[in-house]
């Protein structure tokens, strides 16, 4: 199972062994990772699963809808900004670090 690392704004890290096929939001929610709210349950409707993705991993480009949502996230939007619900976990993401912003709404 790939390991995903969720990093809180204070630097504290949490390693989650996540099954392939589910998305980065769901893996966080199921394991109670703080700061990933996902109010809509993963429908790309709320932009409260905002994360900053680490470099060096083959991530699919955001769809136009996700791009437009990222303009409205609560915390600062950076080039690394993504919505965790829109990225499916594969073995290629083993070791990916996701930084969690200080606020989601």
């Amino acid at each position: 199972m790939p390991t995903i690392i969720y990093e809180q704004p204070d630097g504290i890290r949490r390693r989650v062994d996540a099954p392939e096929g589910i998305d980065l939001m769901l893996a966080a929610k199921r394991n109670g990772v703080r700061g990933i709210e996902a109010d809509c349950g993963g429908a790309c409707a709320c932009a409260t699963c905002h994360v900053y993705v680490g470099d060096g991993f083959p991530l699919p480009e955001p769809e136009p809808e996700e791009q437009a949502m990222l303009a409205e996230v609560a915390a600062e939007r950076l080039p690394q900004s993504r919505l965790a619900c829109q990225i499916t976990i594969t073995s290629a993401l083993d070791g990916l670090v996701l930084r969690i912003p200080a606020r989601q709404f």
């Binding site: 409707a45 437009a68 303009a71 409205e72």
Partner: peptide, 10 residues
């Protein structure tokens, strides 16, 4: 139009 929805909420 989910992004517009977010704008509307704000």
């Amino acid at each position: 139009a989910p992004a517009e929805h977010l704008v509307a909420r704000k």
